Simulated scan of single mutants.
Amino acid sequence: MRSRHLSRVIAASPQSVYAFAADPAHLPLWAAGLAQAQVEVRGDALVAQSPMGEVTVRFVPPNDLGVLDHDVTLPSGTTVTNPLRVLAHPEGAEVLFTVRQIELTDEEFERDCRLVEQDLETLRGLLE
């Protein structure tokens, strides 16, 4: 299994980037690979319609460290842990996402990396 770390520097404070990215209502605005429509909150989980079908997402509890790690349970039943961090950067904040090649061909992995890059760019565009 391969992993790839993708990031974007955003000219905004780490706190404002974290607050925006952590809000489930904002996921459809920037995380097209995860949520394509309104996200439904069910207890401690979020249910979203994604390009893969319905997925269940559980984020780590809110924290002051910029950690937005989340487990995504795919329609197949497989749960993928996605490390996501908002880090302080000299130019504002850096958002770092790790893509893991789980249940993906090499071609699908490259496609997912491109989609995450697009999502991070969308997030940057919304916050700058």
Rank of each mutant, 00 (worst) to 15 (best):
A25N: 08
D69N: 14
P61L: 15
Q118M: 13
T78P: 10
N63M: 14
E107P: 03
L84P: 00
A12D: 08
A19W: 08
S50V: 03
S7F: 03
V60H: 11
R42W: 10
V95S: 00
R58L: 11
L29M: 08
W30H: 00
Q15W: 06
P28I: 03
Q101M: 15
A48D: 02
L27I: 09
V55Q: 00
A48Q: 01
H89F: 14
L84F: 01
A31N: 12
A21V: 02
V86L: 05
S7T: 03
I102R: 06
A11V: 15
E128N: 08
V80Y: 04
L6E: 03
V47K: 05
F109N: 03
D71L: 07
V17N: 01
R4H: 13
D23F: 07
A25P: 06
A31D: 07
L6H: 05
V47L: 13
T56R: 12
L68S: 02
R124C: 08
V39S: 04
L34A: 03
V57G: 00
R42S: 09
L120Y: 00
E91A: 09
L68C: 02
D71N: 10
V17H: 02
V55H: 01
R4S: 15
L123R: 00
R85V: 00
L27V: 15
N82D: 13
P83R: 01
A11M: 11
L123H: 00
P28F: 05
N82R: 09
F97P: 02
R8M: 13
S76D: 14
S76V: 05
S76M: 10
R2A: 15
R100D: 11
V17L: 02
